[in-house]
């Protein structure tokens, strides 16, 4: 099977076959990360540009490493040190970088749809590394990969996504991917942080964490995006912690082998107590490793 799409923009538009192709390819790339020489010559001569208009640690480094593991060259762009400050537009910036004979752009932007615009305007591959509160497809894919690795399947699993659903592009990518592969998804958070009509994405909504956790196989905790809490979505951090943070006690409602996931960065002691973040049930750091395998797979499938 060939991956026919030019770009990876969201999970909404991927077919089940395309998702499975990416996950299967990622499995082959995972093995490379365990080798003494963690590099394959596959994309020798290709060039990829990281365009980050928003801060990021994990995603940026993960993409950077994925590109390098495939032997492609990488150039880094971050808006804070660029001509964007002189007023250059997104499309002009991207066109100029493309003119340097770049084969793919990896784009992180605070506006939903930024990657879609570039994909439409430019003939080269565009990978969405997070656009506003819209989607973060490679995070969604690495979450699917991590769940499949631990549970052996995705279909019919009960998955709870808990926290700030409204501002979370990860939640949206997870929901699309999980529903396409047949998981049952519940989302949970304070009513002010659950977007209206999210049920239309095929999920159940609850405002009680106990109900979300009950009988679930996978718990995905989201970061409370404190930088976006200036308008009163929640009363206080303390109150949020009381009602929506995970705890040993609440976790007993989930299945005994339920795993804890988090897209990072973790607010230790806010949504997730320190002890649980570091416990054997947490696969947070494995998600980070898997992220490289998944991003290698995406870049490979788009550039060959």
């Amino acid at each position: 099977m060939k991956f026919e799409k030019k770009d990876l923009l969201d999970l909404k538009s991927l077919s089940v076959d395309e998702i499975n192709l990416i996950l299967d390819t990622a499995k082959s790339f995972h093995e490379i990360l365990e080798r003494p020489i963690k590099k394959v010559p596959t994309l020798r001569g290709k060039t990829v540009a990281n365009l980050f208009f928003e801060p990021s640690t994990r995603t940026k480094l993960s993409f950077e490493l994925s590109v390098k593991r495939l032997n492609a060259d990488l150039i880094n762009f971050s808006s804070s040190t660029s001509s964007v400050l002189k007023g250059e537009s997104l499309i002009d910036t991207a066109r100029n970088i493309m003119s340097m004979k770049v084969d793919a752009l990896i784009v992180r932007h605070s506006s939903a749809g930024a990657a879609h615009i570039l994909a439409r305007e430019l003939p080269i591959s565009v990978i969405n590394a997070g656009d506003g509160a819209h989607e973060h497809p490679t995070q969604g894919l690495l979450d699917l990969y991590s769940i499949k690795e631990k549970k052996g399947k995705i279909a019919s699993l009960n998955v709870a996504i808990i926290g700030d659903i409204m501002h979370s592009r990860v939640a949206r990518s997870d929901i699309w991917g999980l529903s396409k592969l047949g998981a049952k998804v519940k989302v949970c958070g304070p009513p002010t942080l659950i977007p209206k009509d999210i049920e239309k994405m095929g999920v159940k909504v609850t405002y009680f964490i106990e109900e979300a956790l009950s009988g679930c196989d996978v718990v995905i905790m989201l970061r409370l995006q404190r930088e976006r809490q200036k308008t009163a979505f929640i009363s206080t951090i303390e109150e949020y912690r009381e009602f929506f943070a995970l705890s040993e006690e609440k976790l007993k409602l989930a299945k005994p082998d339920a795993i804890i996931m988090h897209p990072g960065p973790v607010n230790r002691g806010v949504e997730l107590p320190v002890a649980l973040a570091d416990s054997s049930r947490s696969i947070i750091l494995e998600q980070v490793t898997n992220g490289i395998a998944v991003r290698m797979a995406v870049i490979y499938l788009l550039l060959t």
Binding site: D24, T25, T304
Partner: peptide, 10 residues
């Protein structure tokens, strides 16, 4: 023109 399936290296 096609993408070969990557099989496992073990």
């Amino acid at each position: 023109s096609y993408q070969p399936i990557i099989r496992s290296t073990d």
